[in-house]
């Protein structure tokens, strides 16, 4: 899950950079926001992956 989260973070940034370089300027903001949305998903995965597993009191 941790690796998946970091890959999603990188993928989101890839979408942002690709949009900046390749796309027409009218569509760029939508793709930047889409990239950020992918990054947020990745961030949530990374944060959840770092939560310690619940332990019993015994």
């Amino acid at each position: 899950m941790k690796l998946g989260g970091f890959l999603l973070l990188l993928s989101g940034w890839g979408i942002v950079v690709t949009a900046l370089v390749l796309l027409h300027r009218r569509t760029v903001p939508a793709f930047i926001l889409a990239g950020v949305a992918v990054e947020i998903l990745g961030l949530v995965l990374v944060l959840r992956a770092h939560l310690p597993a619940p332990k019993g009191k015994g």
Binding site: F6, L9, L10, S11, G12, W13, G14, V16, L20, I32, L33, G35, V36, E39, G42, L43
Partner: peptide, 12 residues
């Protein structure tokens, strides 16, 4: 947003 995306998606 591009700056923030770079920090979270590349630097982190």
């Amino acid at each position: 947003i591009v700056g923030i995306a770079t920090l979270l998606g590349f630097i982190f």
